[in-house]
Design a protein around this nucleic acid. Structure first.
Lengths: 356, 356
DNA sequence: CCGCTCAGTCGAAGCGTTTCGACTAACCGC
DNA sequence: GCGGTTAGTCGAAACGCTTCGACTGAGCGG
């Protein structure tokens, strides 16, 4: 394995010159640079990451802290991860994914205080997330994916739940629905202060109120069984419901199964719209789900770019950014059966809105 | 941030003594060790990972190379990852996940030749996997999850597809099924030489032959649509089929949807058994899928332990290990309708086998 | 009681970079 | 032609650890 010494010797320059040619920290004449680069190429030189990290106090490693529960990573998260990894790689950084949950604070502290991370991206952020405190205390730049309750001084990138819910409700209302139920994450998740669950709840209430409609939210466990139970509850509370908006990607399958079991057809009897869902998952269902496509990859790229700005200049400007999900109409939503004659009009209205 | 110097000064010993107390590379008296540990605790000392890596030529980082396609990570892979991460952490190593695919050989080469990885775990191994060559050439210890065609000199951990398929087919045969179709991954995937697809194909052929039955395999794209198409093909080729064994986790949902659409009930008309599936995913379906549970977490732990043995002693013994998936009977399998009177007997036979 | 071994400790030499201060020429405006 | 920049280069000192050789006593068989 060639070292900088070898390159310097071959190019007949000093070690520091090689370093400057590599990093551009000081000007180097074109002739010298060419010599150095040629020597590097000839020796197949790769800088030693550890030596570089020690001398520069920069590991060139960014951490992506993503708690991995038994549910696995959905296509949404995956898109985010690959988007972030690509952006990091383009900037000459490595992105390491660490399955560190909110519970493993010690492990996080160890990782960070070993100076292994130049910065961190936090996924599945909770409203009061202790990881934020740990990282701030240790002086590790960070960017949140999601938001804590108090975001002063913190950069974050998140989904614009408000706008996303409004668009979803708008779609259903345009189709002619009035009795719309929102199936959220579980009551426990809400109690824990999981941001997306709380924000969509509030956004749903506001959106329904905006149309003069009454909002009903039902929490559901993150599983097929939870979806089935939620549907039963929903039908009991609102027997004449014609549309369901679902936040819970896992529950939505149970929900569809239970609808089928009860002989209610989708979308003729009940329309279903799934929130923050990737096309891949939406296509798994029968019929394919009308869904709000999450901007996973863009989210990842923006998050990394923001983080790198913090890493490079300590006091970079705070960046707080929201991206909406785009409505994608598939087979699971349509005009309500009871609307009879207004169906055509509703369809036309929806199509118009969709193009907008 | 305290350094080893600070600790040495506070404990009134030399730096090397601190190092020995920390790593145990040389014997240290109990009294001295206590002094040193006390000093470390007082200063909240954490060794600098970069300095340590540079001096010892060991990064204490293991790479988990997992190509992330748009499908995301299933619960199976997630269990594997968390199992591996826990084992690595217990041994004082960091596990970094890198979404490096077979296409990013340059990136892999860079990562490895920067001496950033002490070893690597390769997921989604292909029969002729170029990543293996790159890592071997650079002298990075590696363990495969899956297998290449030629495994001489390579350690791997993999699912015992042979035994798994045999158990799945056995379950269906015990229930009384004779017309069993196997829905595999796509033709492209087979052509690419994706090991699990090829091995299950061969295992299926063998298992069916063992029961004197005729094997029919149908490839399916990894999507719901692929599953629907596959079902159509299957019914055309074997109109009287009573059971389906599915390798393709994505396709199985489309398959179920299409069965429902054609008015065939599961499991009364058609039994469905899903291979290498996590309980979480199996429960998503309606009815819940009888499946072969993948031993994800154990696989991860064993893989890391094997890898660490290679890292610690250069010429560690090759370890090639297969773990079977365990049959878990849920609602999607039962005796074939046509069997009439033998139903009870078949059910009893299946139950017996299940306990074994 | 002699020469050994061995546990326990120290000092110093790396590990392969970055970065700082210093030096040399060339070039500027005047 | 003179001080003052500036581009380009060098040597050496970090960076914070590990590891090697050497030293000191204590314990021990003969």
């Amino acid at each position: 394995m060639a070292t900088m010494q070898d390159v310097a010797r071959l190019a007949r320059v000093s070690v520091s010159t090689v370093s400057y040619a590599l990093t551009g920290a000081r000007p180097i004449s074109q002739a010298t640079r060419d010599k150095v680069l040629a020597a590097m190429a000839e020796l197949d030189y790769q800088p030693n990451a550890m030596a570089r990290g020690l001398a520069s106090r920069r590991s060139r490693i960014l951490g992506l802290l993503l708690p991995m529960d038994e549910r696995g990573l959905g296509a949404t998260e995956t898109a985010f991860v690959t988007g972030a990894a690509a952006a990091a790689s383009a900037a000459g950084y490595h992105l390491v994914l660490s399955p560190i949950g909110v519970g493993d604070l010690d492990q996080l502290r160890r990782l960070a205080s070993q100076r292994m991370l130049d910065g961190a991206l936090l996924m599945e952020v909770q409203l009061h997330d202790p990881r934020v405190d740990v990282l701030r205390e240790l002086g590790v730049p960070l960017v949140l994916i999601g938001r804590t309750a108090d975001t002063t001084g913190l950069s974050y990138v998140d989904i614009d739940f408000d706008q996303t819910v409004r668009a979803a409700v708008g779609h259903l209302v345009d189709l002619g629905h009035h009795r719309i139920v929102y199936v959220n994450h579980s009551a426990d998740t809400l109690a824990e202060g999981y941001g997306p669950a709380l924000r969509t709840r509030d956004a749903f209430t506001a959106a329904m109120a905006g149309h003069g409609l009454e909002p009903l939210m039902i929490p559901a466990e993150d599983s097929a069984a939870g979806g089935r139970t939620a549907l039963a509850t929903a039908l009991r509370r609102v027997p004449d419901l014609t549309a369901i908006l679902a936040m819970n990607e896992s529950a939505v399958f149970g929900l569809l199964g239970e609808l089928a079991a009860r002989g209610r057809s989708v979308p003729d009897d009940v329309s279903v719209v799934s929130m923050v869902t990737s096309p891949q998952v939406a296509e798994l269902a029968t019929p394919a789900l009308t869904a709000m496509n999450s901007p996973g990859s863009a989210l990842g790229r923006i998050a990394i770019e923001t983080l790198l700005r913090h890493v490079d200049v300590g006091d970079a400007q705070i960046n707080q950014q929201l991206l909406p999900c785009a409505l994608e109409v598939r087979g699971s939503s349509g005009p309500p059966r009871t609307e009879g004659t207004t169906t055509e009009a509703a369809r036309r209205r929806a199509a118009t809105r969709r193009r907008a």
